[in-house]
Structures are given as C-alpha cells and as structure tokens.
Simulated scan of single mutants.
Amino acid sequence: MIIGMGSDLCNIERIQNSLDRFGERFELRVFTEVERGKAARRPHTRAGTYAKRFAAKEAFSKAVGTGFKHGVFMKDIGVVNAPSGAPTLALEGGAAARLAELTPHGHEVLVHLTLTDDHPWAQAFVVIEARPLLQAGLNDAVVR
C-alpha cells in the first residue's frame, strides 16, 4: 500500500545562486557527504546534480507529511544509488524516525524515487510503499 507521496520542482539557477553566494556553507548544511562527492565529480552539471537532490529532499518531506519540521532535516535525507544504479534515499535521524512512525506494524517500507532535470528545472517524485512482512509458514510456497 502507498503510505506517502511527494513531488518537488527546483530551479537549477536558484541552486547555482546559493552555491555562488554561500559556497561550501550551503553544501555542508544541506547535502550529505555522498551527495557532495557526486556533485564534485560533475563539475559541468554540479548545480543540476544538487538541484535534483534538493528536490528529492523536499519531495520526501512532503511524502511523510511534515515538511522540514518535527525533527526532519535536509541532511537526514540523502540521495544514494542502489546497486542497480537507481536512485533511492538513505535516511537518518528525524527523517528515519518519521518514516518509522508512518510504517504500519507488520510491514516493511520501500522508498521509490525518480529524478530528472531539463535546465533550468530539476524534479523529483517520491512514493513510499509499505509491504506486509512475510510470516513464516503462512506465505511459504510448498514445492514438491
């Protein structure tokens, strides 16, 4: 079942302006070490890389229904890549706690994330899905 959904549209030029004005202070306040490393490897699209991640953080905060309140902070939400290369979120602190509060008992949670950009816009969609945990014996198939 879907327990949360959020989207955000971020202006890449706005992120570039923040980088120009605040530099490393902005990067350290908003982005994780993994995100900063990825942006550093993309010098020609650095602002776009950050803008997509900024949009993902905003989209997640909407999906959990708090915005950046109640202990949910931008740095607690990090965009990482699954082994397949697909983007997903690594959550810590208040963001992880809020997601745990939303997760129904007996369920595991999956966070689906998609990112895109087309200058001057970056966009992210987050869907939070809860799936029932398998109970030993009840959902096991018998193979003969």
Rank of each mutant, 00 (worst) to 15 (best):
Ile2Asn: 09
Ile2Gly: 06
Ile3Glu: 08
Met5Val: 14
Met5Glu: 07
Ser7Lys: 08
Leu9Tyr: 08
Cys10Thr: 14
Asn11Ala: 12
Glu13Gly: 10
Glu13Arg: 11
Ile15Met: 07
Ile15Ser: 10
Ile15Asp: 11
Gln16Asp: 13
Ser18Glu: 09
Leu19Cys: 14
Asp20Trp: 02
Phe22Cys: 03
Phe22Asp: 04
Glu24Met: 05
Arg25Gln: 09
Phe26Trp: 00
Phe26Tyr: 10
Glu27Phe: 01
Leu28Val: 07
Leu28Gln: 15
Val30Met: 10
Val34Arg: 11
Arg36Ile: 07
Gly37Cys: 02
Gly37Trp: 03
Gly37Pro: 02
Lys38Gly: 00
Ala39Leu: 14
Ala40Ser: 15
Arg42Ile: 01
Pro43Trp: 06
Thr45Gln: 15
Thr45Pro: 04
Arg46His: 08
Ala47Thr: 06
Thr49Ser: 15
Thr49Arg: 03
Ala51His: 03
Ala51Val: 08
Ala51Glu: 05
Phe54Cys: 09
Ala55Arg: 06
Lys57Pro: 07
Glu58His: 11
Ala59Thr: 08
Ala59Cys: 11
Ser61Asn: 07
Lys62Pro: 09
Val64Ile: 15
Gly67Ala: 10
Gly71Tyr: 02
Val72Tyr: 04
Val72Lys: 02
Phe73Gln: 07
Lys75Leu: 12
Lys75Tyr: 05
Ala82Trp: 05
Ala82Arg: 15
Ala82Glu: 15
Pro83Leu: 05
Gly85Phe: 00
Ala86Thr: 01
Pro87Ser: 00
Pro87Cys: 01
Leu89Asp: 00
Ala90Thr: 04
Ala90Arg: 13
Glu92Ile: 05
Glu92Asp: 12
Gly94Phe: 04
Gly94Ser: 01
Ala95Phe: 02
Thr103Cys: 06
Pro104Tyr: 07
Gly106Glu: 04
Val109Ser: 14
Val109Asn: 11
His112Phe: 08
Leu113Asn: 03
Asp117Tyr: 12
Asp117Asn: 12
His119Lys: 13
Pro120Cys: 01
Pro120Phe: 00
Trp121His: 14
Ala122Asp: 06
Val126Ala: 04
Ile128Ala: 00
Ile128Lys: 00
Pro132Tyr: 03
Pro132Thr: 11
Pro132Gln: 10
Leu133Pro: 14
Leu133His: 13
Leu133Glu: 15
Leu134Trp: 05
Gln135Ala: 15
Gln135His: 12
Gly137Arg: 12
Gly137Phe: 11
Leu138His: 12
Asn139His: 12
Asp140Trp: 06
Asp140Val: 13
Val142Asn: 06
Val143Phe: 12
